[in-house]
């Protein structure tokens, strides 16, 4: 049963990757990466339960915070360089 859930999460990650590759603007790509971060946290937690190793939860806990900080950092870099026009042609 854990396998079902993790396969569904993998499919969702694949769809997120499609959006990250396609995404017409830079912000779409950052958004897709943010969503994949959330999905990865859940994947790690489910994998920890599947293999019976609760240490995985510590990794998930750290990953929540790192993925948040990385999103904010990427947005900061994008907005200070403020040359986003060449990627945002709809």
């Amino acid at each position: 049963m854990y396998i079902t859930v993790s396969v569904v999460i993998l499919v969702a990650i694949a769809i997120g990757l499609v959006r990250a590759f396609r995404g017409p603007t830079l912000y779409d790509r950052v958004m897709a990466v943010n969503m994949i971060g959330t999905l990865t946290v859940l994947m790690v937690a489910v994998l920890g339960f599947m293999t019976g190793r609760p240490e995985f939860l510590d990794i998930a806990l750290v990953y929540v915070l790192i993925s948040f900080v990385s999103t904010i950092a990427v947005l900061r870099v994008v907005n200070t360089s403020n040359d986003t026009t060449e990627d945002s042609k709809q």
């Binding site: 859930v5 569904v8 499919v11 969702a12 990650i13 769809i15 959006r19 969503m35 999905l39």
Partner: peptide, 14 residues
């Protein structure tokens, strides 16, 4: 149910 909502969210992003 949670997995279903994750999939729905991903479909919505697409």
């Amino acid at each position: 149910a949670g997995a279903a909502f994750l999939l729905i969210g991903a479909i919505g992003v697409l």
